[in-house]
């Protein structure tokens, strides 16, 4: 139930411009977006790696071997910056998804993103503390 159009122009004579395959190289923002999307492969890869480690929890030697294998070390070196890039880009976008109103004003974006960063730091610090203290026990 909407308006009709009286226009008789057809698209036949119009120029349709194809999007170039390398469109994502045309603008730095697009490239950053593609990298952001790509980083999920490494985040996923690292998750697989964690699962493999988990499967070896009852076999300390196999666990250590896997952790120390050159491939695993390489993966961790690559996955770390990728995961950081992934987290930072997504955390920076959180104000768009999560909007908190206080009367007529939005809570400023930096507070929303800041809260995520703070949470990230707190969890990381907690994990490090756990890992370090766990280390002295064992």
């Amino acid at each position: 139930m909407t308006n009709r159009t009286g226009n008789t122009t057809t698209t036949e004579r119009q120029l349709i411009r194809k999007m170039p395959a390398n469109w994502w190289l045309k603008k730095p923002a697009y490239l950053r977006y593609m990298i952001r999307e790509m980083t999920c492969l490494f985040v996923g890869g690292y998750a697989m790696f964690l699962l493999m480690l988990a499967a070896r929890l009852d076999k300390p030697e196999a666990f250590a071997d896997l952790l120390a294998s050159p491939l695993a070390i390489a993966l961790q070196w690559i996955a770390l910056p990728m995961a950081i890039y992934h987290s930072v880009t997504w955390f920076n976008l959180t104000p768009k998804v999560l909007v908190i109103w206080r009367g007529e004003d939005k809570l400023p974006g930096f507070l929303i993103a800041g809260a995520h960063y703070a949470g990230w730091l707190a969890v990381s610090a907690g994990l490090i503390y756990f890992a370090m203290s766990g280390g002295t026990d064992g």
């Binding site: 139930m1 909407t2 308006n3 009709r4 009286g6």
Partner: peptide, 9 residues
């Protein structure tokens, strides 16, 4: 929303 309206844009 009115379908009795034809627009000549």
């Amino acid at each position: 929303q009115y379908d009795n309206v034809t627009r000549y844009d």
